[in-house]
């Protein structure tokens, strides 16, 4: 499902090559696998998630997602792969001019699903995250926790094969965080590969599972 062999990532600073965000990463995640992604701030967790989300390409090594070598793939090949990936961003990344309903519906519309199916799926998903009555609200009218739940609904509504989450419980209370973990585990049980970046040691302790541990852009633990 996901394979990294000696993967490195440099960000560009203007035309210059910036500092190395990730280096010499090598690990595999099998289909239907689950990984916590842990490490201190600045360790490279978000960069690794961006790599797995295919919004940046590796600047070294080999990254294979869904059997496709991402470094060698053409631009035209990537959108179809991205449609199979759900991502919960730390900063939600909702479109401010769209309602909660339309934000959640966005990946389905991009994938070209029929509007009737979109309506049913999005309504069900909003009900599941407890926002059925807020479907017409725009992000500015929602609390941080509500925006987080919209972002989660958007990430899972298309039943992705690979689900990535960057600090998904950061704006949720304990009850909501537990509810989210149940959702992620259910997605994992149904066959999705799940990678969750978190600082929340308590959450990891309550839901034990294999972890990838990053420090200064290097993988220091895979167990």
């Amino acid at each position: 499902m996901v394979r990294l062999d000696g993967v490195a990532l440099h960000y560009q600073v203007g035309r210059r090559r910036g500092p190395e965000a990730l280096r010499d990463l090598a690990f595999r995640i099998e289909e239907g696998g689950f990984r916590w992604l842990r490490g201190p701030s600045g360790a490279g967790k978000t960069s690794l998630l961006r790599l797995l989300h295919l919004t940046v390409r590796p600047t070294g090594g080999r990254l294979v997602v869904f059997g496709t070598d991402i470094g060698a793939a053409t631009r035209a090949e990537l959108p179809a792969l991205r449609q199979r990936i759900g991502m919960v961003f730390q900063d939600f990344r909702l479109l401010p001019h769209l309602t909660a309903f339309d934000n959640v519906a966005l990946p389905l519309r991009i994938a070209g699903r029929p509007e009737g199916q979109i309506r049913a799926d999005v309504t069900e998903m909003l009900r599941w995250v407890g926002l059925a009555r807020r479907s017409g609200a725009r992000p500015a009218e929602l609390s941080g926790g509500e925006q987080q739940r919209v972002a989660i609904a958007r990430a899972v509504v298309g039943r992705p094969s690979l689900l990535l989450a960057d600090e998904p419980t950061g704006n949720l209370d304990d009850a909501q965080a537990e509810r989210l973990m149940l959702l992620l585990k259910e997605m994992n049980r149904l066959g999705a590969t799940v990678v969750v970046a978190t600082h929340n040691a308590g959450l990891v302790a309550r839901h034990p599972g294999p972890s990838l541990v990053l420090e200064q852009g290097r993988l220091v633990g895979d167990a």
């Binding site: 919004t55 959108p79 179809a80 991205r82 990344r93 001019h97 966005l106 990946p107 991009i110």
Partner: peptide
């Protein structure tokens, strides 16, 4: 720009 990057990340093609 932000909206484009978001829909691009969700799998939108250049054509879309």
């Amino acid at each position: 720009r932000d909206a484009i990057e978001i829909v691009h990340g969700l799998g939108a093609t250049d054509r879309y």
